[in-house]
Design a protein around this nucleic acid. Sequence first.
RNA 1: GUCCGGAUGGUGUAGUGGCCUAUCAUGAAGCCCUGUCGAGGCUUCGACCCGGGUUCGAAUCCCGGUCCGGGCGCCA
Length: 457
Amino acid sequence: MERHDRSRTAFIPGVHLSKGEVPLILRTHYSGEISPDMDGSEVTLAGHVHEIRDLGGICFLVLRDREGLAQVTVLTKRADKKLVEIVRGVSRESVVLVRGKVKSEPKAPNGFEIIPEAVEVLSRADSPLPLDPTGKVGAELDTRLDARFLDLRRPASMAVFKIESAVMRSLRNTFYENGFIEVCTPKIVATATEGGTALFPISYFEREAFLNQSPQLYKQMLMATGLDRVFEIGPIFRAEEHDTRRHLNEAISVDVEVSYADHEDVMALLENAVASAYRYVSENCDRELRILGIELDVPKTPFRRITYTEALEMASESGRRSMEWGDDIDTETEHYLGSVIGEHYFLTDWPSSVKPYYTQPYDDKPEICKGFDLMHPSMELASGAQRVHDYELLVNRIREKGLNPESFEFYLKPFRYGMPPHAGWGLGLARLVQTMLRLENIRDAVLFPRDRRRLVP
RNA sequence: GUCCGGAUGGUGUAGUGGCCUAUCAUGAAGCCCUGUCGAGGCUUCGACCCGGGUUCGAAUCCCGGUCCGGGCGCCA
């Protein structure tokens, strides 16, 4: 608890130096780190003014920081006149620094309050506010996103991103524990990954280039290097004009690729990674889950496997609009399957015609392939496959999809010089968080979402 | 892209042709109040998305536009 020993001599931002070297953070404690048993100790808190309740002879200023709320209590007749003036004059959501003594007080929230010796307003907030961070009055998603910086001061909004951080941490843990290497592949590329999906064109000096829709081709090329197991958590860009609560034009994709593995191996990795993330969040994000009112059930592994053909049969037995074998599964069917199954599941053995050219067909039954989707009852979370590693087959598959192998030369080249068999998947981070926390709209799971119309903030 | 619904003070809302000089809450400004914890009391401030039309009269009905939400399509 080194922080407790830091002394403060001045209330001037940026001049607190520790032995003339590293600038100190102004606060000594987060509000969540204070407890009644610290009665009498001096602390410095910093944060936003959540509320001021002025009762006349006694005035409460509630300070909010990342870890909670702390009540600062001023007895206006006894306290320093100037201090009283500052506390009464500060606007809600202004940034303040409060130095004072912890007082154990049963009448105060959490059993303690701060008796201030000095209060400094570091930044004054304008009024009226674009939304109410205390949550007394709600705000629509659009209003919240327009003032996202302020929306995130609402504990329920911030909790989502603390949990998202925990999810990424857990995923990285899983990958490192399994011998993976984290990589970064280019986001500015010369060609589409697989055709079909629309790309954002950009101007790259004198040439046209695109924002990458997926790290697919690059992570596969890395399988030709001997890195064997790679993962990447990075942005992908899709120029589709979709307009739903589970699509965005910029998303974070969690991608893995594994050499000497097949689709079964990477499905096991995927279900383990997802279940571990749930477990990690349930064990480490107690306060955030409580704020969100979420009881987290860790999904049981292994997840159920359902083949594409079985899924079609389930849908037609239910008397729903039947699909032709070879159609992609439509949203209505997807929701039906989700409602019947009620937990995470894999959809496997897809028709080769539905999946991209790099998906490995079964040797004995080439009309189906080793591609899979990871489904949450409400939506698709991930898709993956064992990949084609044979050069001739890959070129043929590209041609069958109506694409020109010449434009994929940079990708195909490694397949001629020793490409191990490999498999992998890509998982939508925001969708994982959205489904985990039962958020209605994916925009709630992204700090600054990019959709068809929204480009700012 | 398409279908359905919507747009009222800063925020969230009530209001389906005249009773609207527009409701309530929150907020802001001011006053009172020594234990609040969505504090309370009193006073004040602040709004009908844009354009056209119907009508004696439009926040309200019609047309067009813009934006928002949801479904589908497309997609991860």
